[in-house]
Design a protein around this nucleic acid. Structure first.
Length: 371
DNA sequence: AACGCGGTCAACCGCCATGCC
DNA sequence: TGGCATGGCGGTTGACCGCGT
């Protein structure tokens, strides 16, 4: 049932806060009637979205353009998904909120068919309480009982955190000072952790990664269109590439620490977690740790970068400073060549970008042979 | 049946960024 | 360069609804 707000409840504040377009004439407020919806829907489907300020007049509505825009985006848009949030969506929202905070529009961009308003409401009315019940602070995503300690620690840490922007890559010697980690569950979603401010800003400024060009050529792969995070996508993609049957890329990254989302790059350093079950990729030391039943190797100082054009293949451009196995450093001919070409092994920027699907996969073969 | 209360969610408010003149 | 119009977004409000008493 559509009932408008009581007109006598308009306050001075309300009138002052209105856009100029709304002050020019007496405009309707409150809930939309089915007739209004029909008018707006017919107009937009016929003429498309253009200048919202002219929509009310052209569509024959006594509403301001803003109101029309909102009604279209939040309710009338044909691609909207209706109904309850799935468990997967719920997990994704929590994970994204952990990274993005209250940036509902950005979160909504990862959930096709969901609006920022819808997600915001869902968060405020449901997820927040759910997390609280689990003893997790919905703002920090950290255990409530440790909050005071964490806050104190954070204050101390802030003073000693170097700038990722200026250094280009995180300084692993300061790893203990960064209270940040990424935890990805088996679905590839973040389930915990926090970025520092510099990384967060870098990450948030990155354009949305469009996975569709890749999936167009990968029949049978679930595109998971909501997942636009490069790290998550790499986590998913690794399972698609199996350059060597002895080393399956089927594990998940876990518990990243000091993960740097610098300019078009993801560097993984100082990861804590190592769980060497069969066929796994984990973070370990400075880089990531790949294991299978027979062998273990550590790719040191691994970094992943992608181009601003958001092309999928560029996601797999990797940088290496060396490859280690449990017995010590072992390098493939390819790596030896790269390391000879680049004397300073700590200088990531000097290492060549290589496509995983081509040269890099060959490098993996070489590494595996050495192990 | 009436009332109170809490949850949900559509819609609005207010601010900011951007583009145009 | 400054002012204005507009779009976009996060925060907030308030109507509605269901449930318990």
């Amino acid at each position: 049932m559509y009932i408008g707000k009581k007109p006598d409840k308009q306050t001075k504040k309300e009138i002052m806060g209105r856009h100029s377009c709304c002050l020019k004439q007496k405009l309707r407020k409150g809930l939309w009637s089915p007739e209004e919806d029909e008018k707006l829907f017919n107009y937009i489907t016929r003429f498309g979205v253009g200048c919202w300020s002219s929509v009310p007049k052209l569509a024959g509505l006594q509403r301001c353009g803003k109101s029309c825009r909102l009604r279209w985006i939040n309710y009338l848009r044909p691609d909207l998904k209706r109904g309850m949030f799935s468990q997967q969506e719920e997990d994704l929202i929590i994970s994204l909120h952990e990274v993005l905070g209250n940036r509902w529009a950005q979160i909504a961009a990862q959930l096709p068919g969901r609006t920022d308003n819808e997600i915001k409401n869902f968060w405020n009315s449901c997820l927040k309480k759910k997390l609280m019940k689990q003893g997790i602070d919905p703002n920090t995503h950290k255990p409530l009982s440790n909050m005071e300690m964490k806050e104190e620690k954070n204050c101390a840490d802030k003073a000693s955190i170097p700038s990722f922007q200026s250094s280009g890559i995180a300084n692993s010697s300061n790893s203990a000072e960064f209270e940040q980690s990424f935890i990805l569950n088996d679905s590839g979603y973040y389930v915990g952790g926090e970025l520092n401010q510099a990384s967060r800003e870098h990450f948030l400024d990155k354009p949305i990664f469009d996975s569709s060009p890749f999936f167009d050529f990968q029949p049978g792969i679930d595109p998971i269109p909501s997942n636009s995070n490069p790290l998550l996508q790499f986590n998913q993609m690794q399972s698609q590439f199996e350059p060597n049957p002895n080393l399956e890329f089927s594990g998940s990254f876990t518990n990243f620490e000091q993960t740097d989302f610098s300019e078009n790059s993801v560097f993984m350093n100082e990861a804590k977690e190592t769980s060497s079950n069969s066929s796994n990729i984990n973070c370990h030391g400075r880089g990531f740790h790949m294991t299978n039943n027979d062998s273990t190797m550590l790719v040191e100082n691994a970094g992943f970068s992608w181009h601003s054009e958001n092309k999928f293949e560029s996601l797999f451009h990797c940088q290496f400073s060396g490859v280690k196995c449990e017995e010590g450093l072992k390098t493939s001919p390819w790596h030896e060549e790269q390391m000879q070409n680049h004397n300073n092994s700590d200088d990531f920027s000097s290492y060549p970008l290589t496509s995983l699907s081509e040269d890099l996969s060959a490098a993996y073969f070489d590494v595996i042979h050495h192990i």
